[in-house]
């Protein structure tokens, strides 16, 4: 399942909902991404997440489907926020459940790695020196690439 929203979410409640009523779940894995207050040297006052409504949902659903195909998952949830967020605020939630832990761990990591390089979101950082768009990182591409043709098992 995917959700794109401006408002915050409650990670505990989301995790509880992911496993509720399914006694076939043996393990759940959750990743929560937060706004950091440091970017290189300058302090960040806030960041604004822009996205492409329509394509964002489509792309997240595609990534979610890919994970379901690669691993034996019981349930998944991706939540991604947009709008202006301050340091310490939650940006993204990725939750996966499966009968055994390895699939949940791997799928969770896969989802956040692919999301970072494929879902159409852009971060605009506000610092004391002004606003600037965050540049894509080669390390994120490398993290996404290692899942190429890999998974399942």
């Amino acid at each position: 399942m995917i959700r794109v929203q401006r408002e915050d979410f409650d990670p505990g409640a989301e995790l509880a909902a992911l496993t509720e009523g399914d006694h076939g779940v043996g393990g759940a894995c959750v990743f929560v991404g937060l706004v950091r207050d440091l970017a290189g040297e300058g302090r960040i006052a806030a960041m604004t997440l822009e996205h492409y409504p329509g394509m964002t949902e489509k792309e997240l659903a595609r990534i979610d489907a890919e994970a379901q195909e690669r691993w034996p998952l019981r349930s998944t949830l991706i939540i991604h926020r947009y709008g202006r967020l301050e340091p310490g605020e939650r940006i993204v939630f990725v939750g996966t459940t499966s009968a055994h832990r390895q699939a949940a761990f791997d799928a969770c990591q896969f989802l956040i790695d692919w999301l970072k390089t494929k879902a159409p979101f852009w971060k605009l950082e506000e610092t004391a020196e002004g606003e600037h768009w965050v540049e894509a990182k080669d390390s994120d591409d490398a993290a996404a690439d290692r899942w190429q043709g890999q998974g399942g098992g």
């Binding site: 991404g33 996205h51 492409y52 991604h80 993204v92 956040i112 979101f121 540049e135 894509a136």
Partner: peptide, 23 residues
């Protein structure tokens, strides 16, 4: 997502943007 050789028609919605930085 498409590559540079993707054909275009009059009714298409084309989006141009920088490499993404979400997550």
């Amino acid at each position: 997502y498409v590559g540079a050789d993707h054909p275009l028609g009059d009714g298409d919605e084309v989006a141009l943007f920088p490499p993404v930085t979400g997550g």
